[in-house]
Nucleic acid binder design. Structure first.
Lengths: 345, 345
DNA sequence: CCCATCTGTGTAATCGATTCCACAAGGAGG
DNA sequence: CCTCCTTGTGGAATCGATTACACAGATGGG
């Protein structure tokens, strides 16, 4: 592969001049410039990003450590992050932690070793020493979706409180009184917050959230299945199950289906995180939708601001409730759909 | 951030010795080794991967250019690729081409500039000059899922022929005779092959695949919706729609639902690529399942073999049919489920 | 006792870029 | 005509690692 020396030789100039042309430094003669450009063309030269990074101490790369690539929420987040980063001249390296703190550390360490310019993290746990050290060492960092309390790092996230209140209002309006939640790991902020928001919303209706109705999940489908089975085995099972993420909702659907029960007739279901498939599940699932794309973009903007020495503030955007049929009768005033539909066919 | 010089100073040895300890070169005294290790510890030293890469001309990084991160198939592929790569001591940088040749080129160029050790590509098109140049220049490369004919690069993919034959047999057995397909882009091998496999399987039953029943999609949901609307507008609409990927199947579901029609009563649906949500859609969707995880792992093994100078062969694994209810009555001999279910509740 | 061999270590070249500094040539002003 | 600037260019240091080579000191065989 051709190096800057080859280009210099071909153009009959020094490497310094080639470098100046490539970084369009002002003091280069028109003549030298065209000769260099021609040499670049004939040799098919591309600057070595590794060498450049070593010298300039910048990689123009952001690291993104997410908790689970198989979760459509994070996948969408990753996509918007990459898009915004590309628009700002940065590349993104994604690390998938699979909700495992050790894997998360592996990726953080790897990204740091590669001297990425900044780190976007959705922490799987309360913060490993490694990550705290990185913050202390001054690595530009931004938390997205989840964060670690007590660490001075901007946080970009959605506030689901209002949407969860709307959800509980909706459920209460449908006559449901025994509401249960499949919680995320207590080590994550989203794991705790969603339970808290749910509990607060319930108490506004004088409803309680007994321990038996708080199932401990880990944001993965299997845990949703397991917890839901536990709920169904209770002497008095809940009337509604609220899954704190979409994968646990999937697991809950699996469990309900395995018992030959039906949603929402036998048990209602709602989920945090809206995904496209929820429109077509049986039944369509009521969910709290986050402005995922906007979160990703805001996170990148905040991180790049930090990298370039500007402030870079935290951002909180509201989530909103999307009502579908998984909690009971159709929400709006339209007549029940099924009979109408059949007559159409 | 501490460099190897700082470690050398702290340990009272030369940088060469530090390097030797770090790469456990045999000829280092036990004394020097412990002093270096202690210095590494106190300084929290981590080798600079950028500098190391420049010197050794290896980045221990693979590039993966996929067509669409939002497609669960590719997401799963990416995950297995990263896992296997990690097991073999490599990191992965993912580039999302979004089915756009220009973006694909952007990522290939970017990855090449970063001097990745090898490239895993699922090409969006017939092969840009850039990619062909890279192959010619000797960049270790492996195609996964899709490939470019006439290019000497190992291909790791699934063969769906048998599964598509099974699908057509299943559909024929259910009495369907007018079968349509939502094809992928003709520029992709999977786009063409799936249509061909479908046509061949049909002809075995004396069935024809008229042009009106071949809709041109682009592997994205919107195109699935658009094509399906076209099918439904036909004077004689098909009885079955086979979507060449899961996102177009999602679009098809959207279109059918928007018309107030039902699957499979009004029109049957099948898809290439099985995803977890197909179990819970209304109705559960019959699909051709690829051994995605195994494909990803095999692709990485082939690529790493090439990188390390070993042969690295092509791999073709069979896909298989997963029958659900979206094409008509339950496949097995069990009695119809719905009434039984209701009685359980 | 001498020379060959082996061990452990340091010096310095190297990878491919960027950039400081020196300097030559040319133009402007006195 | 001499100085002072400006402009364009090249030489060389530098980033942080790896590694070829030289070499000092210890060891061992004849």
């Amino acid at each position: 592969m051709a190096s800057i020396k080859d280009v210099a030789a071909e153009a009959g100039v020094s490497v310094a001049t080639v470098s100046r042309v490539l970084n369009d430094h002002p003091s280069v003669s028109a003549d030298a410039r065209t000769r260099v450009l021609a040499a670049v063309e004939t040799l098919g030269y591309r600057p070595n990003a590794v060498a450049r990074s070593l010298r300039t101490d910048q990689t123009h790369t952001l690291g993104l450590v997410i908790s689970d690539v198989l979760n459509p929420y994070f996948t969408e987040l990753a996509r918007s992050v990459e898009e915004e980063a590309r628009a700002l001249g940065y590349s993104v390296i994604i690390g998938n932690a699979d909700e495992r703190p050790d894997l998360q550390d592996h990726h953080v360490r790897n990204l740091l070793d590669r001297r990425i310019d900044g780190l976007l993290v959705s922490p799987t746990d309360g913060g490993s020493p490694l990550m705290l050290d990185a913050v202390r060492a001054g690595t530009p960092m931004v938390f997205v979706d989840r964060w670690i309390p007590g660490v001075d790092v901007p946080v970009v996230r959605a506030d689901g409180r209002a949407a969860v209140r709307d959800l509980v209002a909706h459920l209460h309006g449908l006559g449901h009184r025994r509401l249960a939640i499949i919680a995320g790991p207590a080590a994550t902020t989203t794991g705790r917050e969603r339970v808290e928001a749910f509990r607060e919303a319930l108490s506004a209706y004088g409803l309680d959230l007994p321990d038996a109705y708080i199932g401990q999940g880990d944001f993965q489908a299997d845990s949703g299945r397991r917890v839901t089975e536990g709920f169904l085995d209770l002497p008095e099972p809940p009337e509604v199950v609220f899954a704190a993420d979409n994968l646990m909702a999937l697991g809950a659907l699996d469990a309900v289906r395995a018992r030959g029960l039906r949603v929402p007739d036998d048990i209602a279901l709602a989920a945090f995180d809206d995904i496209r498939w929820f429109v077509h599940t049986d039944p369509p699932v009521t969910a709290v939708a986050q402005p995922t794309g906007e979160l990703g973009r805001a996170a990148v903007r905040a991180l790049v601001a930090r990298i370039e020495g500007r402030p870079g503030e935290s951002v909180t955007l509201p989530a909103r409730l999307v009502v579908r049929r998984s909690c009971g009768e159709a929400p709006s005033a339209v007549p029940p759909l099924s009979p109408v539909r059949r007559s159409t066919s």
